[in-house]
Design a protein around this nucleic acid. Structure first.
Lengths: 153, 153
DNA sequence: CCTGTGAGTTCCGTGAAGGAACCCACTCTA
DNA sequence: TAGAGTGGGTTCCTTCACGGAACTCACAGG
């Protein structure tokens, strides 16, 4: 078992806290981002991120334990490995798109966004918006009421 | 000025890294969540989160410096303060909804989600889905091509 | 045989997290 | 008017995780 941050959030009755328990430490989303764009090997990750070997090894082990990544051998003789997104990890990348959107809007400055995203369906350079899974209309944080669910404490 | 984690991400040409520079440390999203649901005072935050006064004070100062929260005096004599979301902070709460969605799907277990969200527009208990800002169709991490933008290094 | 490379592990010093104690302005109650 | 209580912090201290450098190991190529 790997330990992460000081205070463990996994036991809180809160999906945000539980999500943070998996990727709430600042390197993990960047690791995920790089794996998502095809940077999947240990040394590639280390060089592109500027992370220390030690911390990278810890994070990768944690993400594998939590079923976000899988470690796959792509060459025996010599033994070489890469890290691949699981379905659970793929869906986490959606979170990255929302982080990108916020960062582009509020932190990009005059030079504009460093990376653009072209939507396969329409071919346009675009960004994500949040819609309701039920009615399809826009659904922002200001558009909802928060009520206790079955897993409340 | 408050300093945050060891490695600063703000200078990277990456909107994810820049966003993480603001809220990439694990307590910040939980603080934001609580302010979002109306827990806005220092001691309320401290008690509900179980965070130390020291770290809470640091995080709040950081979030205020980064224009995510504002510190407002709601009573002079005695002097009392609350923390309120800015527009920039409101939009960050959208990120929380996406974290909730992922946590509900992958980490909630048999008891089900601890919190439910009712969409004002349709009145249904629902969740967010990501759609394209251009064509309105679903837009997931697997539905886009990543290409360099004007702010690339 | 020597060098190089991918993929880590080990060791060590510093700084942030977490906790406890302390502080200050102010109010309430006896 | 003395004493207790409360909100909103600050200071101090310990411990643990981060970041960096050095080391390891399996293998390949020249």
């Amino acid at each position: 078992m790997v330990t992460m941050q000081r205070t463990k959030f996994g036991d809180m009755a809160c999906s945000i806290a539980r999500t943070l328990d998996v990727i709430g430490e600042p390197w993990s989303p960047l690791i995920l981002r790089n794996v998502y764009v095809g940077i999947t090997r240990f040394d590639e990750l280390r060089q592109t991120l500027g992370i220390s070997r030690k911390v990278l090894a810890e994070r990768l082990k944690w993400l594998v334990e939590n079923d976000v990544l899988v470690r796959e051998e792509y060459s025996r003789h010599p033994p070489r490995f890469e890290y691949v997104l699981t379905p659970k990890g793929q869906e986490l990348c959606d979170l990255l798109l929302v982080m990108v959107r916020w960062g582009d809007r509020w932190l990009a400055g005059e030079t504009g966004p460093p990376v653009l995203y072209r939507h396969h369906a329409c071919g346009e350079i675009s960004h994500v918006e949040l819609h309701c899974g039920s009615c399809g209309e826009p659904m922002r944080a200001t558009d909802v009421d928060v009520i206790p669910g079955p897993g409340a404490e």
